[in-house]
Design a protein around this nucleic acid. Sequence first.
DNA 1: GATTTTCATATTGTCGACAATTTGTATTAT
DNA 2: ATAATACAAATTGTCGACAATATGAAAATC
Lengths: 226, 226
Amino acid sequence: MTRQASSPEKSGDTLKDRTLERLQKLILTGNLNPGAKLLETQVAAQLDVSRATLREAMVQLSEIGLLVYLPFRGTFLRTLDPVDLDEIYSFRTGLEKMAFQFCWDKRDLISLADLQMRNNKLCDCISNNDPYGAIMAEMHLHSWCYELSGHTLLLQSWERLKPNLQFYFAMHQKAHGRGGPLHESHDKYIQLANGDSLDDMLDHLEDHMRQGLENTMKFLDERNVS
Amino acid sequence: MTRQASSPEKSGDTLKDRTLERLQKLILTGNLNPGAKLLETQVAAQLDVSRATLREAMVQLSEIGLLVYLPFRGTFLRTLDPVDLDEIYSFRTGLEKMAFQFCWDKRDLISLADLQMRNNKLCDCISNNDPYGAIMAEMHLHSWCYELSGHTLLLQSWERLKPNLQFYFAMHQKAHGRGGPLHESHDKYIQLANGDSLDDMLDHLEDHMRQGLENTMKFLDERNVS
DNA sequence: GATTTTCATATTGTCGACAATTTGTATTAT
DNA sequence: ATAATACAAATTGTCGACAATATGAAAATC
């Protein structure tokens, strides 16, 4: 028996998977408010699938943490208070430090060129005034170290965390119109990733993430929706 | 809206949840072989639930990684080759290092006494020649830092990883009759957790885990079941 | 005899209906 | 008027049946 493919989901072959992705997109596009209750009948009708199919997708999104399932009470879109955001960022920091430790010795010209390309894409989006694309591009940039690490569990953890981050960005975007990644914000990141000191890279990660969190936190004073 | 309880699952109130736990127990008890196909009809009949209910539970176990879902092909019990085991252990090491960083300043007399109790429980199980209990007790011991950290994401990650570890122990036990944790294996762990140096604790974690992995790896030469 | 094709069977995917539980409303008692 | 209770409506939980797909065996072809 051979090892399963590195991307367990993304198959999209089955209706449940397509439903999962469509529902996730619906959430990540900002159509729903944090804490909102998702009525199974209503959502199923909206996506034109049966409740059973929708429920399987919802179980999966609950496992990721985008949805919160309460038995007999319903399934709700997650909320994002400062504590949640702090957890997401601190966890993300630890995870990405692990990823760099694992990928460090696997870097080569090809993979580093790939990293550079991801950064260029990000810069393009920012230049073209495409905040949604910029967010996606930044995610893709940060995925680099996880993919290179070849560590399945690590990559899966990141894949699980990512939608929650995207969700925050979507909310942020919706509330304040602007607020994606900044120009040249990843210059030092790229530079250190090309360098010789893993310790410097790890230290910078702390700074990089803390800065991202702070940039992000100062908008969170307004109320957190119901 | 208040924050959801720290233990999202464990509700067991609904049949799906009870089914999930029973199926997990079935797996963790060693009744199934790695890579074995789980026929929905058969398992549903065995657990006396409908397929729809079983499928929701299976989706959840697939998300944890205990099961591997292949669209239209079936759902299979995970396999455990040396690469998998290495990933589990290295990921666990990184996770637990994070946990100790987060919990370090939260230690107090009460929580440290709790840690001591968990170790005593472990020693009791070993003395009483209760390998299954010892495995559970060791897990519980290691859960201490995650719980104390108060970091939801971290704890969830550990809770997701745990069944995979337990599964390995179950297989190990089944194949070689013996092989739970050893007496006094956690003495230094406890000692350092009570100490003043976080760095020493983190260093020891690497050793502690590596030793656990090696103790464990040397039995893996036999074939990996079909 | 080996390979491809066809077809029956088994298994998974999806659905709509019914049962159990919650939630909100109207009623009653104090 | 307020609080407790009973009830009706809405929502989730669970199920069995049918559709779509994969699997394996028999038949046909080379």
